[in-house]
């Protein structure tokens, strides 16, 4: 009976080989995250902001919950209350990673990703603690930063810890639209425009540019929390300009996150 089964399998394989394919391919891939390519391993990252501050970033850790690629480009994101984009997702990395944003080295996500070999036009970075993205309360530190900002001879040491929890809930615009601002929309950076051909044998690289976090931050408006030594802190809410701007930079779909599909081996 085994020989009979083998015979049929050979016939079937011969027929199958002659009759074509459905197109495309499934593939698994390794995924990596890293800081800017011009950063130096083990050293602070220095840059200038649009407000004239010279920032020396000594600590920047970003928690990435998941990364997705979608083959569609959404026409209107603001009106969409769904956590997920319409269209077909073509790649996903569903394991979380704490990324040292100051290191240019590729830091691997703990589990491989999974993809279909298609063209991707949109990327998403999900910033959550790997529980339920719709759960309002999540104390996971999404961004942990420390450094100094200097302008006009004045140096402002700062630190900050950003969470996306009940502190980020946006009130509904009206009683008739209680679900207009679901918490998941706060945690998903989208749509990040990409132009990628997902291919087997290559990997996904997410580069995070910390300059995007501080693009328009007025460090002079930070709240001082200590005198000796002096220390200023970004609030974990939207109570002041620096904290609000930092949070906006964290969730910016342009200028902070870039994704490439390339061979890493």
């Amino acid at each position: 009976m085994k020989r009979l089964a083998l015979f049929f399998a050979l016939v079937s394989a011969a027929v199958a080989g002659c009759v074509g394919t459905t197109g495309g391919e499934l593939t698994s891939f390794d995924a990596y995250a890293a800081g800017p390519a011009d950063a130096r391993p083990g050293e602070p990252y220095t840059f200038e902001t649009s407000r004239g501050y010279t920032v020396v970033l000594s600590r920047a850790t970003l928690h990435v919950g998941a990364v997705y690629l979608n083959r569609s480009r959404p026409s209107s994101v603001s009106a969409d209350t769904s956590c997920q984009l319409a269209g077909i997702y073509v790649a996903e990395v569903t394991s979380g990673l704490d990324v040292d944003v100051l290191s240019p080295a590729l830091q691997p996500f703990p589990e491989p990703g999974f993809a279909t070999t298609e063209h991707a036009r949109t990327a998403e970075v999900w910033l959550f603690g790997n529980g339920d993205i719709n759960e309002v309360n999540d104390d996971t530190a999404i961004l942990d930063i420390a450094g100094t900002a200097t302008k006009d001879g004045q140096t402002i040491p700062f630190e900050g810890r950003v969470t996306i929890s009940d502190n980020r809930v946006v009130p509904p615009p009206s009683p008739a639209a209680p679900g207009a601002h679901p918490i998941c929309k706060q945690r998903i950076v989208t749509p990040i425009p990409v132009d990628l051909d997902v291919e087997a044998g290559k990997d996904l690289i997410l580069r995070v540019d910390p300059r995007g976090f501080f693009r328009n931050v007025d460090f002079g408006a930070l709240a001082q929390i200590a005198d000796d030594p002096p220390l200023y802190r970004f609030e974990d809410d939207s109570s002041d300009q620096p904290s609000t701007t930092l949070y906006s930079g964290l969730r910016a779909s342009v200028g902070t996150y870039t994704l490439t599909w390339e061979a890493t081996q």
Partner: peptide, 20 residues
Amino acid sequence: SYIGKRALPYGQRSDTIFTF
């Protein structure tokens, strides 16, 4: 019954089915 590997999306093929 013998059912050959069926075409699946993304160039995939299913398992065969062989039952007696």
